[in-house]
Amino acid sequence: MRLPRFEYLRPETLGQALSLLAVHKDDAKILAGGTDLLVRMKKGLLKPKALISLKALNELSYIKKEDACIKIGAGASLADIIASDIIQKEAKALFQACGKVGAITLQHYTGTIGGNILQDNRCHHYNQSGLHRSGRQACHKDGGKICYARDEADRCNSTCQSDGATALMALGAGITLARKGGERTIDLADFYTTDGIMPFAIESHELLKEIIIPVQGAKSAYTRLAYRSAIDYPIVCAGVLLKPSDTQKDKIDEARIVVGAIARSPLFLVRESSSLKGKNLNDTDAFKKAADSSMNSASTFAVHNVGSTLKYRCDMVSEMVFQALKKSARAALPTKE
């Protein structure tokens, strides 16, 4: 499969990369590991005039702890994240999520966390060859006016299958977007649009620079379901975070439940999360209730466009959330002497 033609640009500093982005804007795409972008280009889903490679740009590949936060450069590889002590100890959900992405030989060494967050949404009607797509009218995401996944849909409901983003949202992460002459930091949970055609609220001249995870004495966990244990994208996944109270170590002070691979973006379920405040860390009944309620809330956003049947994926939301809650509660419970 040939790639379409493009101009290859290789800036050596972040400043140069931002200047190139400011000039090329929509005509250019950032090339990180390429394990998402190049596949889409091969299928003819996009034809950027230029690719701006991050290969020569070492300043974006770091993982460090600073001001009660973990800071990860967007160019850090999944392998670096998996190997990091800081991530293993203090951002377990991200460690578990990155370990599950595709396969070691596919993206652990080349794939980046920035590319993982910004990989495009997917849909089995859209992520197909040009030949396949040419046999029928184009859907919204392909420049047309219909949707094959949901009748009468006025927009695209393609699915965000990023393992990393689901875990990071559970960890309450923020992201820094840099542009020529400035930058802004927002919550990852506010980074998503309401249309799967362009799922991210990023400007064409902006670059994802850094991911910031607050460290708050909480425990997190990530669970996911896929057909095979490797190579396959998740068909439903969950990231959760449980913060024990400072005064009563076996009580939950704050919880975050995020369900992924079911909607246009990972879903931070506010109601289910707050239902666990004040509950005991071994209150599995409360976990079960929150998990079932998560299933109901997430199901309203779900569309049958990746992997298995919609019913199965929705049913499994409850199981994924329940297991993730139990895992992180186990880690958060004070150890008995």
Partner: peptide, 16 residues
């Protein structure tokens, strides 16, 4: 192998 690590050569640009 690229710098001793296994990678997909179908998803790696020669330039990279």
């Amino acid at each position: 192998h690229m710098d001793n690590k296994p990678v997909r050569s179908c998803l790696t640009l020669a330039m990279e």
